[in-house]
Design a protein around this nucleic acid. Structure first.
Length: 209
DNA sequence: CTACCGATTGACT
DNA sequence: GTCAATCGGTAGA
């Protein structure tokens, strides 16, 4: 039986969602919807992989050596984006904890659900699995660049995160691992991903729960 | 100003 | 599995 699903505008997660311990926020961002709206249309999908970067005792965090022009958004209020460039590519984070406490969640991969054709155009690939598997691919698919550094993700326009109305149908199977591309601190299991998802980047080496 | 380096990706063995 | 392109951010002279 097929049903035509009404196109509803998903409400953004509130600021309080992000005003918590980053590890809690990271876990709870799993399965949420990342949504991007431009004049070309809406696109987005289900978050299947994230990493936490902590304000305390985390040398891998960009803010670990104090505030600079690049990482200033991490020191701002929760629920805003921190967008940075690495190897000439953009990556998207959601800032957590109160202003002045620099922590963030790197959004590493989504399962494309909406506006898939638009993502294909931006990524110039026919392979759905490659559209947003990895933080920089995700930003290219969603047309996210430095103009979204500091963007308020709770405003519900252009770029935001919302509850997935279908979350009860397919709860993510969440497992943890060391973060990708981080040489130090591999013992810290700050990467969260859905072990059932094909749209996850990197190795599947998992440490359940 | 220069030098070094990276929360990556895509191409290749 | 390996490897290097590529360029802005950062630190240091």
């Amino acid at each position: 039986m097929s049903e035509t699903k009404a196109v509803i505008r998903l409400s953004p997660l509130a600021r309080e969602f992000y005003l918590r311990d980053p590890i809690v926020v990271a876990r709870e961002l799993m399965g949420k919807r990342l949504i991007r709206e431009t004049s070309a249309g809406i696109c987005g999908g289900r978050i299947v992989e994230v990493e936490a970067y902590l304000s305390q005792r985390d040398p891998a965090c960009h803010a670990s050596r104090g505030m600079t022009n690049r990482n200033a958004a991490m020191f701002g209020p929760p629920g805003h984006a921190y967008v940075y460039m690495i190897h000439s590519r953009w990556c998207l984070n959601a800032v957590t904890e109160p202003a002045g406490v620099p922590s963030a969640i790197l959004i590493r991969a989504i399962e494309p659900l909406e506006g898939v054709e638009l993502m294909h155009q931006r990524r110039r690939t026919d392979i759905v699995r490659d559209l947003a598997r990895g933080p920089a691919r995700l930003c290219e698919a969603l047309a996210i660049d430095r103009t979204y550094n500091g963007w308020d993700l709770t405003a519900g326009r252009e770029l935001w995160i919302a509850d997935d109305p279908d979350a009860h149908l397919r709860p993510p199977r969440i497992v943890r691992s060391g973060r990708i591309g981080i040489s130090s601190a591999q013992k810290r299991l700050l990467r969260f991903f859905d072990s059932e998802s094909r749209f996850v980047s990197g190795a599947r080496k998992l440490h359940a729960r």
